[in-house]
Design a protein around this nucleic acid. Structure first.
Lengths: 246, 246
DNA sequence: GAAATATACTTGTCTAGACAAGTTTGCGCA
DNA sequence: TGCGCAAACTTGTCTAGACAAGTATATTTC
């Protein structure tokens, strides 16, 4: 017969493995403030005794909480409840198509430019290639339920995606396509406010004095630039959201 | 004598433990494209043989790569190189003081409002408390090297931080203070472009037609609202950056 | 040739040690 | 009373199994 604190099995659906039950127990204690940030938590030995499991099982639970940023561990000292500021302020920028679908809305795109060019100084600087290098350049507008949501101005390195220009970007986003053909290993991006260019204003149905949210993103693999995109969104029509709840 | 592929120890500094060496080996192979996303990677048994370690050691390496989003694992099938789009698009919003210091610059703050109020409809809605509930309200401008960078308009729940108004916010940021006294467990935030209010424009030295980057952030613990902040940044003076490189 | 079954392979998870390494606490001695 | 050392506690990491559970492959049977 298992002790009261021993990881148990419920009727019907399979119970979570003991290491997950221990994680959940500790998470709940953290959530209800039993240990405020900086507070010392029970040692591995304590938890081994409490849950009647092996130390490796307890260790896995604690290490995963540590990797999730919920606890801090110091060799020889102990395990402490963590302050959650850093982990609670993370957010993820999504592919526009996926984002719109997740809202239960309809995404469509119109292609306004798709051609090979010699890189201008701006293009070269944005993509990280040499002046006059051959680059692919697309300008696409994305809509949610018929409303312009994003103007995507993108340069692509032909070396990484030679067939880029033959793709129908009314059916698949460049982001999605490039994921398949040009896997990334590094990315840099920035989020800022600004004003649209005249062209962007026109494509988005804005005045050039209307504020926009600009996400710039550049991806690289093995030192080779893959793509650089400038994603422009009308203020009031688009925001990036984040939620944190362990 | 250790085999060629056995985790080894280098002269001088202590070698990484075997599980970390295996992670590094696999990361390097992933980085150089040896396995492109979706490709099947060696099984745990293969890696056990290759590195002459126990299966638990290999398992830990793979599981941590999985938690970092670099590989996908399917029980009974195998381990696969992951597509990195989602994990590569994450970024973290920092405390302004810490961010400025990290750039090697000087941060200072001026306090323009710090008082207890009855929550207006706007304040109540923003913080998630009842209309006319007592709330603390501060308006603070943060500078980097003397240049206004952020106007912070914040409401705080007195229940969570009763001594909030007695704090000198020219010496510590509200974010930092609240971290200590009112640990969070949940957070919601949004990043968008917009225009400043007349007051924000004045405090930031802007015209009300100048675009701004607005970060809204609300934190909660055990269902109780802690704080809500509207952080307004002049376009051109501030951006949120992210870098991804496993 | 298809279906059923067995076998093999793979990940998921656990145990019960073990030793390394770091830190804290307690004890003995000057 | 303070210092040095030993003991105890704690996390870091590893081993060598073991069994569970999922999937893929091979074999057997109809």
């Amino acid at each position: 017969m298992r002790s009261q604190s021993e990881p148990t099995q419920s009727a019907g659906k399979r119970a979570a493995p003991p290491y997950e039950q221990i994680k959940l127990f500790l998470k709940e204690r953290l959530e209800n403030g039993h240990w405020t940030p900086g507070a010392l938590m029970p040692s591995e030995a304590d938890l081994v005794a409490k849950f009647a499991v092996s130390r490796m099982t307890v260790n896995r639970a604690l290490r995963e909480l540590q990797l999730e940023g919920l606890v801090d561990r110091v060799q020889g000292v102990g395990t402490f409840a963590a302050q959650l500021h850093r982990v609670s302020s993370s957010l993820t920028i999504r592919d526009i198509h996926e984002e719109v679908l997740e809202r239960g809305h309809v995404h469509h795109a119109t292609v306004h430019l798709a051609k090979a060019e010699s890189a201008s100084a701006t293009a070269a600087q944005r993509l990280g290639v040499g002046l006059n290098a051959s680059v692919f350049h697309t300008v696409i507008v994305h809509y949610e339920n018929g409303v312009a949501l994003q103007c995507e101005d993108r340069y692509v390195n032909p070396e990484c995606a030679p067939d880029y220009l033959s793709v129908d970007f009314t059916k698949i986003t460049p982001t999605h396509y490039l994921l398949d053909v040009a896997p990334l290993w590094e990315a840099r991006f920035a989020v800022e406010a600004g004003l649209p260019t005249a062209r962007e204003a026109k494509l988005l149905g804005l005045k050039i004095t209307d504020p926009v949210l600009i996400v710039s993103r550049r991806t690289v693999n093995r030192g080779v630039p893959i793509t650089q995109a400038r994603l422009v969104h009308p203020a009031g029509r688009y925001q990036i959201d984040g939620v944190f709840k362990p």
